[in-house]
């Protein structure tokens, strides 16, 4: 077979363009201010102060006012996390209350507006076994197919009363 031609035309323009583009791209770009729009991100109520999560908790806040203090926490466990009855009784135990039977559960665990139909809330008051002072606990348990979320607002009854509405409003967005 004969050669097609003796020489390939030198691709000057291609080569020049290539080198120029490499040069431009190689220069470090100064970082600029960026502006963009995102869907609203869930934010806790303004009165909640930050605190370090403890143990398996994923988030923790504190609420302090002239009536005392309360804490808000969120924990996620795999599966049913031990089940609704077990966890309700665990929380009742923290306030020194007696354990409930399965059949009594429906009377104290109520659905929560804005959450899935499986979500249940309890609102109990007793003596905190840790601090030995009167405390109120609003706890919400949300189960999905593979995970269970536990949200807990606990502390001075007056502070809990004040914070309860904001707590429940924040839950649907708090993951």
């Amino acid at each position: 077979m004969r050669p097609i031609n003796g020489m390939i035309p030198f691709p000057k323009i291609l080569c020049l363009g290539l080198l120029t583009s490499v040069g431009f791209l190689g220069c470090e770009k100064a970082k600029q201010i960026k502006v963009y729009t995102i869907p609203t991100e869930p934010a806790p109520p303004a009165s909640w102060g930050f605190a370090s999560p403890s143990g398996p908790e994923k988030a923790r806040f504190t609420i302090t006012d002239t009536n005392g203090t309360a804490s808000v926490s969120m924990t996620v466990l795999q599966g049913d996390g031990g089940g609704l009855l077990e966890n309700v009784n665990r929380w009742r135990g923290q306030l020194g209350l007696e354990k409930l039977e399965e059949k009594a559960l429906a009377d104290v665990a109520n659905p929560v507006k804005g959450l899935s139909k499986e979500a249940r809330m309890i609102d109990i008051t007793g003596i905190s076994q840790r601090t030995q002072i009167e405390s109120r606990l609003v706890g919400v348990i949300v189960t999905s197919k593979e995970l269970t979320w536990f949200y807990k607002l606990m502390g001075s009854p007056l502070v809990v009363e004040e914070a309860k509405e904001g707590f429940l409003d924040y839950l649907p967005q708090w993951r």
């Binding site: 970082k31 201010i33 960026k34 502006v35 729009t37 995102i38 609203t40 991100e41």
Partner: peptide, 16 residues
């Protein structure tokens, strides 16, 4: 926050 449930974000690089 902006109308319609979104947030406008102004991101300033740490370098600045």
């Amino acid at each position: 926050p902006m109308k319609g449930g979104s947030n406008r974000v102004v991101s300033i690089p740490e370098q600045m």
